[in-house]
Amino acid sequence: MKIINNQNILTNKQIESIIKLLGKDYTPQRIFVYETRFDLIKYYPQSFNFSLEEFRGELEGSYDPAADIVYLCIFSQTDDGDDLHSKQLYSLHALAHELRHRYQYVNNRLFHDDAKSEKDADTFATNFINRNSSKISKIMGWQEEWTVEEED
């Protein structure tokens, strides 16, 4: 797995450790981490898959099954201002969500209804983060455990 990342918010080692908790069915060929909108343009020659929704910060990430690449848009994490831990936590949630889409694809567990696929990925990501909050806190070097709260 190759990770393209400036490593200012999440390090490659942290991402690798989180993916190790998930297992091999969640490991894509590549991950692009976009910390800023400029990164979308900066990595464009290597990464031809970004949409206007991603550029506007409306998507937290995406998974391209044809290339087996996860795209993570950290810059879209603005719910709690610029708090680093919150940005990291919700970026990890988005990463787990997109990696769940990879799992769905690789294991032929796709839903015919996109809403069901999204619900499955959201529920999975929330449960994964909250179930592993102690391990994730250690990986991230946080003093406290954090959990994710989903909005309906």
Rank of each mutant, 00 (worst) to 15 (best):
N6G: 00
W146T: 04
P28Y: 00
N6Q: 06
F50T: 00
E149K: 10
I69Q: 02
N107T: 12
N127T: 10
D83R: 12
A121Q: 03
H101A: 14
D39Y: 10
L40H: 04
P45A: 13
N12V: 08
I3S: 14
V106R: 07
Y103R: 09
Q143I: 11
D122S: 10
E60F: 12
Q29Y: 08
R131Y: 00
Q88V: 07
S51V: 02
T11S: 15
K24C: 00
I9K: 12
I129P: 03
D122K: 08
N6A: 05
K87G: 07
Q46K: 07
Y90E: 13
L84K: 09
S76L: 02
L22S: 11
I9N: 14
Q88I: 08
S117K: 06
E150L: 15
P28V: 02
H112N: 14
I18A: 05
E150F: 12
K42G: 08
E98N: 02
E16Q: 11
L10D: 01
K116Q: 14
N6R: 10
S134K: 13
Q46Y: 06
R131M: 00
A94C: 14
G57V: 07
A66D: 07
S76N: 08
N130F: 01
K119F: 11
N130G: 04
T78D: 10
F38Y: 15
D80F: 05
L40F: 06
F38I: 15
E16G: 01
Q77N: 11
L40V: 04
K2G: 05
Q88D: 12
